[in-house]
Amino acid sequence: MDLDHNSVVAFSKSWGLFYLIALAVGVVVYTFWPSNRKRFNQAKNSILGEDDKPWK
């Protein structure tokens, strides 16, 4: 297959679609994975801590 305009277009119109959908599914799964809930809740409260020193 030579790399002319039409073949590049065909590639990006087909595989481009699939990998973007796969990425979107991956992100949604990661976001709503039940065991991540605790980690996210901790993270969003962590920035409200009052100490201003690095941890050991």
């Binding site: 993270a43 969003k44 409200l48």
Partner: peptide
């Protein structure tokens, strides 16, 4: 996502939504 919660002294409304919008904006 850092200074607004810190100033308001309230955690971000939805951490999950912030992740989804991050990847949405990136892609």
């Amino acid at each position: 996502y850092y200074y607004l919660p810190v100033r308001a002294q309230r955690p971000i409304f939805s951490y999950r939504l912030s992740i989804l919008s991050f990847w949405g904006i990136t892609f």
